[in-house]
Simulated assay, not measured.
Amino acid sequence: MSGLISVDEALALLAQHALTLPVQTIPLAAALGARLATPVTAKVSRPPAAVSAMDGYAVQLSDVGAPGARLRVIGDAPAGRPFAGTVGKGDALRIFTGSVIPEGADHVVIQEDVDRNDDTLVCHKAYDTAQFVRAIGIDFAEGDELLSAGCLVGPAGLSIAAAANHGTLSIYRRPRVGILANGDELREPGSALEPGQIVNSNPEGLGALIRQWGGEPVDLGVADDAMDSIRTRIGAAPGIDIFLPVGGASVGDHDLMRPAFADAGFTPVFEKVAVKPGKPTWFSTRGDRRVLGLPGNPASAFVCAHLFLRPLIEGGMRRALLNARSVSALPGPGRRETYLRACVHADTDGVLSVEAAVNQDSSLIRPFLTANALIRRLADAPPVAAGDLVEVLMIAPLE
């Protein structure tokens, strides 16, 4: 497909060419940031039995309905060593946080409310409702689905999978994303720069995003402004699922990325998108490999990574937009769908407000330090007045 296509058309084509990645079973400890291939269901209930929430004594509630109740201590049951007998009328069993509530007991008297002398217990507080007992399965029950297929495994996911008694998880292999920069003027961070040279900053930020989205970034280095140099970098990159060429995507004499990948056998799917920033974004395929070309300007590359690379890594999933009130007036976007770097915050009444960065120049990285969202402005939309609702795409957590 050639010509200028809409953002929605581009996303639909990316979904049609979603990667099919192999499924792997890996140890739980290695699963952070991986994408689940199958749901995680609980193999056990948590807790697996009713347990005490406090240190104290397991009793029958009816025995402690008035202050000064005297009870007989019949033993103790530390966590992990359940009591084999039954707590009867007038009995008390010494237990601890996490101890299994024994048969016959329905309440825990906390140790701060009692005096004990040998096997005699005096309770100074009256209770009218059962307390300090965690019922079986209050966190989750055996068979509950805890994590859905397709979700990224985060720290909380690791914890709940472990608590559900999973030692391994079934995940999709992380897609390997090869970042290929292009430009005679580019130098690595920390270099001594000569006149006309600039730092190649895109791989650092894009690589971090790729890891965050469940991919494995691979830095393929910087290709010179020459077809042979680009083709060499492509040929020397086995095992790449998604090539991510950055720069060299426009129509200048030195914009050689698309023809170089075409020479390497990749078929164009789309060649430019009616989006601002990021019009030169392009996409090609060859067998089970993909190429998503991004503009070289850092803001364009970052915005288009959020718009197009993330769904490609995530198997074509579309992300939901939110509504927020614009803090300031916004001009009409013109003929291309436009995405403005912005900061969303929740007002005291819970309503979301969004403030666009003052300078939206496509070369600027600094606005991303505070931006947690992109304001979406549809092509040819009218201007927005302060206080009007606009659509936003979250790119970082709401603070």
Rank of each mutant, 00 (worst) to 15 (best):
P383Y: 02
I240N: 11
G137K: 15
D219F: 09
L340S: 03
V392S: 12
A379T: 09
V44I: 14
L321E: 02
A149L: 07
T281N: 11
V133A: 00
G248N: 04
F140Y: 12
R258P: 03
L19N: 07
L19F: 08
P67L: 06
L180M: 11
D255T: 00
R233C: 06
D55L: 07
P259G: 06
R325L: 15
G88T: 07
A381M: 10
G215E: 06
R376S: 04
R310F: 11
S250R: 08
T232C: 14
G221E: 00
G235D: 09
Q111M: 09
V392K: 13
L21K: 03
A264D: 04
G215Y: 07
A262P: 03
A262H: 10
I395C: 08
G68E: 07
A356W: 02
D347P: 00
V218E: 01
S62H: 05
G104M: 03
S45D: 02
H345R: 15
D349C: 14
P47D: 01
V122E: 11
E194C: 13
P175M: 05
I101G: 06
P298V: 00
G265F: 11
D144F: 12
F270H: 04
C151K: 12
F308M: 04
I242G: 01
Y127F: 13
V122M: 14
V133N: 03
P298M: 07
L321V: 08
E337Y: 00
V246R: 02
A126L: 05
A18Q: 11
L158Q: 10
P195K: 13
A385C: 11
D255S: 12
R116M: 13
E103H: 05
A385Q: 12
V199Q: 00
A162Q: 15
V351C: 05
D106Q: 00
V269N: 00
V392M: 09
A373D: 08
S300Y: 07
L330H: 10
S362C: 11
P397C: 06
V269S: 08
D91R: 01
G332M: 06
P175H: 07
P238A: 05
L398C: 14
R211E: 13
A135G: 01
D255F: 10
E112T: 01
N297G: 02
N165E: 15
V275Y: 06
M394F: 12
S170K: 15
I230Q: 01
F266T: 02
I313S: 08
P203F: 08
R72T: 09
H166M: 09
A329H: 08
I160F: 13
A181H: 04
I138R: 07
R336D: 10
R341F: 04
G65K: 05
G221P: 07
L209G: 09
K272M: 11
S229R: 09
E399I: 13
A386R: 14
L61C: 03
V358Y: 14
N165W: 04
G3N: 10
V114M: 10
I240S: 12
P268E: 01
K272C: 10
V59T: 10
P383Q: 04
I313W: 05
A274E: 01
R233I: 02
L206V: 03
R286V: 00
L4K: 12
V133W: 05
V384T: 12
G293T: 05
P333F: 06
A237L: 09
E271H: 11
V246C: 05
R336C: 02
G316T: 05
G75I: 06
I234H: 09
A329F: 11
A274S: 14
G387S: 13
